[in-house]
């Protein structure tokens, strides 16, 4: 009985997973790897900011559960590949945004900065979808609640209104975003 259950589950994931077949899983893995490589290359050679996000594909829009499933998969792959950083929020968010935008889901990137005296410079990168947090805790929105501006509608910047400036502190996103 247990064997049949496992086999049945495998079959479901491989062929009938709301549009995610084996080929789709392979494509997602490949796109995630390429997105991480792009982000890493950008950080090494350009240093700051984020590489441009792909345009949102208009022809396909995923249902929310499938989008969540893809985001989980991308997050897992990112965690496995980005072994040189403990905090992977930038790589995870960028890769997820790339993969989902190419499937018609208009995920946007958000960067938050704060200066926490003893802890020093802090930064975080997260995703939003239609202005709502996407796979992110409310705590992030509470901390980074002061809107700073946007590079374009897909990349927005925030700060902590309780920020404690300590001088001409220049905080490079290269060093900060996880």
């Amino acid at each position: 009985m247990g064997v049949w259950s496992i086999l049945g589950k495998r079959k479901t994931m491989a062929t009938n997973d709301r549009g995610l077949g084996v080929g789709q899983y392979g494509a997602i893995v490949w796109e995630t790897v390429m997105a991480i490589a792009t982000a890493a290359r950008f950080r090494v050679f350009d240093g700051k900011g984020a590489p441009p996000l792909p345009e949102v594909a208009g022809e396909e829009v995923l249902d929310p559960p499938t989008a969540q499933k893809i985001a989980r998969l991308v997050g897992l792959i990112t965690r496995l590949l980005v072994i040189w950083r403990r905090r992977i929020c930038f790589y995870r968010s960028y890769a997820t945004a790339c993969v989902l935008r190419s499937r018609g889901v208009a995920v946007a990137l958000n960067f938050g900065y704060r200066w926490d005296g003893p802890a020093g410079a802090m930064a975080h990168c997260w995703m939003t979808l239609d202005g709502q947090l996407f796979r992110e805790t409310e705590e992030t929105a509470r901390i980074y609640s002061a809107y700073l501006g946007e590079k374009d509608p897909s990349v927005r910047f925030w700060t902590d209104p309780g920020n404690s400036p300590g001088g001409h502190e220049k905080l490079s996103k290269k060093e900060l975003a996880g």
């Binding site: 700051k48 900011g49 984020a50 960067f111 900065y113 200066w115 930064a123 700060t159 920020n163 404690s164 400036p165 300590g166 001088g167 001409h168 502190e169 220049k170 905080l171 490079s172 996103k173 290269k174 900060l176």
Partner: peptide
């Protein structure tokens, strides 16, 4: 550039 500054 994505650089962030705080001023006293």
């Amino acid at each position: 550039s994505g650089e962030y500054y705080t001023l006293n």
